[in-house]
């Protein structure tokens, strides 16, 4: 049992590594696009443009509830 587990992990690892290594041109291109896209989404858009409004501005769920309740009950600005 103790010998089998690392083997399975190694097999899965080499399955993915070989798969990526033997990818065709189109596969490499789309992976490059995926990585660029994920970088733009998570390292730029999420960090600089899309903070979670309630998480950023309030510390507790109670504060968030109070804020939304205030918004819901005070339509006029």
């Amino acid at each position: 049992m103790t010998n089998k587990t690392p083997n399975i992990i190694r097999q899965v690892w080499s399955f993915y590594v070989n798969g990526f290594r033997n990818m065709g041109t189109w596969g490499k291109q789309v992976w490059l696009i995926i990585l660029i896209k994920l970088f733009i989404m998570f390292a730029i858009l999420k960090v600089f443009f899309f903070p979670d409004f309630l998480k950023t501005n309030f510390e507790t769920d109670q504060e968030r509830s109070d804020y939304v309740l205030e918004i819901l009950t005070e339509p006029k600005e």
């Binding site: 789309v30 989404m41 899309f50 903070p51 979670d52 968030r64 819901l72």
Partner: peptide, 29 residues
């Protein structure tokens, strides 16, 4: 299929970003 899937993958996550930033009252509600 692989090309379509790879380009499209994770584009939906941006919608979740928008829920938190642009639709926070809705998301909480």
């Amino acid at each position: 299929f692989g090309i379509n899937f790879a380009i499209g993958v994770a584009t939906g996550i941006i919608l979740e970003f928008e829920f938190g930033t642009n639709w926070s009252n809705y998301s909480w509600f």
